[in-house]
Amino acid sequence: MTATLERPSVAVRKKRSVTPARVALHVFLVLTCLMTLTPLLWAVYASLRTYEDTSVNGYFSIAKSLTFENFAKAWEIGDLPHFYWNTFLITVPALILTLVLSSMVAFGVSRFSFKFNIALLMLFTAGNLLPQQVIVTPLWRLYRLIELPAWMSESESLIDSPLGVILIHIAFQMGFCTFVLSNYMKTIPYELTEAARVDGASVFRQYWQLTLPLCRPVLAALATLEFTWIYNDFLWALVLIQDGDKMPVTSALQNLKGTFFTDNNLIAAGSLLVALPTLVVFFVLQRQFVGGLTLGSTKG
């Protein structure tokens, strides 16, 4: 921020002249960011300390020593690699299928006209906004009725199977994605698909080769959001999975929180490890994020 850091370019200097208002703005923003990050940093601090240290000195004290031991311990005790894999098995297929299916619906309702395309869109959107608890009991019963061959689900039903969790995520999240995607697709000029149609392109080609590539930014934004939501889910696994070994990593975190012994430093370390993938995905796709959500803007 100091003047010495400024590049000699005239244009830049003109734009970034140091006015008191600017300084105040930066001070305000830095403080706000620090306040926002404090709880997280506090957890990081706790995770780096030993149980012996904090149980004697309390958390509000200077650490005797800092160590990554808790992370290693959480990784091992929590059997995190195993549970990361479980989550991966649920999140990735659910994410891909959600995006594929909802982009198909969005394509259908935004590019073609039939009597109930608005009704269909409303149905999907409304479904996404329902409180999840509303459907728990009947869904569980329904899942129990659907029997599957062993190659699809080890438990031979949708209960206690990653497939069941994937399906409900898809069913639920499709609403939001369809809504966003259909609105985005409406901003793509109709002439584009119209021309392709005249050239004899099939409906599927219009969807797959023409429309989808244009939706890349919004798909990236949705992928980030949906990844976060599906990854962080806690209710569906609790209701639908019965085998402790099949639980996703968010539920496995509970294993670290002992019933008869609690080491908050260990839980802090475990929680941070569990949050890591969402943070990574967020930082990797961050650039797409605001851009992808800036849809149907007044800029046209």
């Binding site: 609790l238 019965q242 402790g244 070994d245 639980m247 539920s251 509970q254 294993n255 019933t259």
Partner: peptide
Amino acid sequence: NTKQHEQYQE
């Protein structure tokens, strides 16, 4: 098949 103590009860 190990499940978290409280989760098991729920």
